[in-house]
Simulated assay, not measured.
Amino acid sequence: MSHKYKDRVKNLIAELEKDLFEREECVRLVLLAMFAGKAIFLYGPPGTAKSMIARKVSLAFGTPEDIFGPLDIGQLKQI
């Protein structure tokens, strides 16, 4: 990986980890899954930043629809 891309990924990780306490590994795993084109399932009790991580990562790459697919029930029925 060139230094340009390595620096961009490091900056992205640092930005995504802001305001998240002890969730660094989860952020990195979500990014790894995205880069690999794979799905990831975040499991845990309420209040453990699952939605916040998903939201931050999705906004870093575009709209939630770009990442997760259609969020409209009518659109989901058409798939």
Rank of each mutant, 00 (worst) to 15 (best):
T63F: 13
L12C: 07
I67V: 12
L32P: 01
P64H: 08
Q75W: 07
I40G: 00
I79F: 12
L32M: 08
P46L: 02
V27R: 00
K56R: 15
V57T: 06
L12M: 14
L29K: 03
I40T: 01
M34I: 01
K50V: 07
K10D: 15
E22Q: 13
E65D: 12
I53Y: 00
V57W: 02
D66G: 06
V30T: 01
G44A: 05
I13V: 08
E22L: 05
G69K: 01
P64N: 10
G69H: 11
E15N: 11
T63P: 02
E24A: 10
S2K: 12
Q75D: 10
S51G: 12
A14Y: 14
V57A: 03
N11A: 15
A54K: 11
F61L: 15
A36G: 04
E24F: 01
I53G: 00
G37Q: 08
T63K: 06
G74T: 10
D7W: 10
F35T: 12
L12Y: 07
P64G: 02
P46A: 08
L32W: 11
I73A: 14
H3M: 07
Q78I: 04
I73E: 09
D72H: 03
L42A: 12
L59K: 14
I67M: 06
D66H: 15
L42Q: 11
V57P: 00
K77C: 06
V9L: 12
M1L: 14
D66R: 09
G37D: 09
I53K: 00
A14M: 06
P64M: 10
L12N: 04
C26M: 04
I79T: 08
F21A: 00
E65K: 11
L20G: 11
F61Q: 05
V27E: 00
Q78S: 15
L12Q: 15
M1Y: 05
V30H: 00
G69Y: 12
A36R: 01
I40N: 00
G37E: 03
L59C: 11
K77F: 11
F61N: 02
G47M: 08
L16S: 05
D72E: 07
E22R: 09
V9Q: 14
K18R: 13
K4E: 13
L16E: 07
L42I: 11
A49T: 08
F61Y: 15
D19L: 07
Y5A: 04
M52W: 11
F21R: 01
E22T: 07
K56H: 03
E24S: 12
H3Q: 15
F21M: 04
Y5P: 01
A39R: 05
F41K: 03
F41G: 02
M34N: 11
A60Q: 08
F41C: 03
I67T: 07
V30P: 00
F68R: 10
G74A: 09
K18V: 09
L32G: 02
D72A: 08
E15H: 11
I67N: 09
P70Q: 02
K6M: 15
L31T: 03
I67L: 12
D7Q: 10
G44V: 05
K77H: 09
I13C: 03
D19I: 05
M34R: 08
F41T: 13
V30Q: 00
L29T: 01
K38G: 05
K18H: 04
A33V: 08
K56L: 10
E65L: 02
F68D: 03
K38S: 05
R28Q: 04
C26R: 01
T63C: 03
R28P: 03
I73C: 02
I13Q: 13
H3F: 14
S51I: 09
A33T: 02
I13K: 14
V27Y: 01
Y43E: 15
